[in-house]
Design a protein around this nucleic acid. Structure first.
Lengths: 150, 150
DNA sequence: CACAATTATATCGTGCACAATATATATTTG
DNA sequence: CAAATATATATTGTGCACGATATAATTGTG
């Protein structure tokens, strides 16, 4: 009787399509974001700042699921690009508050067309897309909540 | 009438949960894979080799959605770890054939428990998990096929 | 058969991503 | 109030990830 190792087959694992799909979708952002002088991760940071307003590096990291080691240099690059400002508040010099510059706020208008451009590249009906996002958010919500209970 | 920029809101975009979810799931692999001296991407390469057998770097790259720039150094590291061998066939010295070593084949047995360990960390019912994987595979299949038509 | 075009992989530069560690400020505690 | 502790960010080292380019072998064409 041959050993089949069913549990190790690619098609029986979530990780592979999740990882590959994420890479493929991120890849679609490259071209439209290039015109805005943003990388994908920088774009997500800008989305968060546009939606929630100024916040600290820590708050940003929690929302985007990134740690200081990734976020700190990324924010320096975004500052260099002129879209944000990094300032330490006088009452707590440990903190780093991320503020949108005029240029950063203005970029929002130019970024409006990005979601639509990428949506066109994702070959999925609207209802499937909603279902997919819903499942992903469910995983995300439960995983991060479980972590916080620790 | 205020401008709402609905299209730029995080909750209306697939990219964010997809990206964050992928990172969180990959993160769960870190600990179990550490015992095998594998990174996540290296693990995917091993899964492919275990399932499909020896193949060229190019074939591997196509399956895993990675290019030479990423794969070449990764494979060198895997060779250094002793799990694979990189050889150029005599009839075509451009090619690089990736072969599992004895140690690489033996690793399969030790890797058996990994999927289960990670499955436990993903807070989703079996049926939801299947639905999620199915949607992701659908996106992946359609996106890569569209690309090939170019 | 020479030489242009193609194929397959490698290298380089930039930017994530993260664990481990460092640093610097703020808060708590004896 | 000084020392210990906690908090918030920065730095370092390793490993992806990818576009652009380089290199080397093979194939196609005149």
């Amino acid at each position: 009787m041959p050993e089949t190792y069913e549990e190790l087959k690619i098609e029986n694992q979530l990780c592979f399509p999740l990882y590959a799909c994420s890479k493929e979708v991120v890849r679609q952002y490259r071209k439209p974001l290039e015109e805005l002088n943003l990388t994908y991760t920088q774009y997500i940071v800008m989305l968060l700042l546009w939606e929630y307003g100024d916040m600290s590096e820590g708050q940003l990291g929690e929302k985007i699921h990134l740690e200081s080691g990734t976020l700190a240099p990324l924010l320096k690059r975004l500052e260099k690009s002129g879209y944000i400002k990094r300032t330490r508040p006088e009452n707590n010099e440990r903190m780093l508050i991320i503020t949108l510059t005029e240029e950063g706020m203005a970029l929002k208008e130019r970024a409006r067309c990005v979601p639509e451009k990428v949506r066109c590249c994702i070959p999925l009906a609207d209802e499937d897309l909603v279902a997919l996002a819903s499942l992903l958010n469910k995983v995300l919500y439960n995983m991060t909540n479980n972590n916080k209970e620790k």
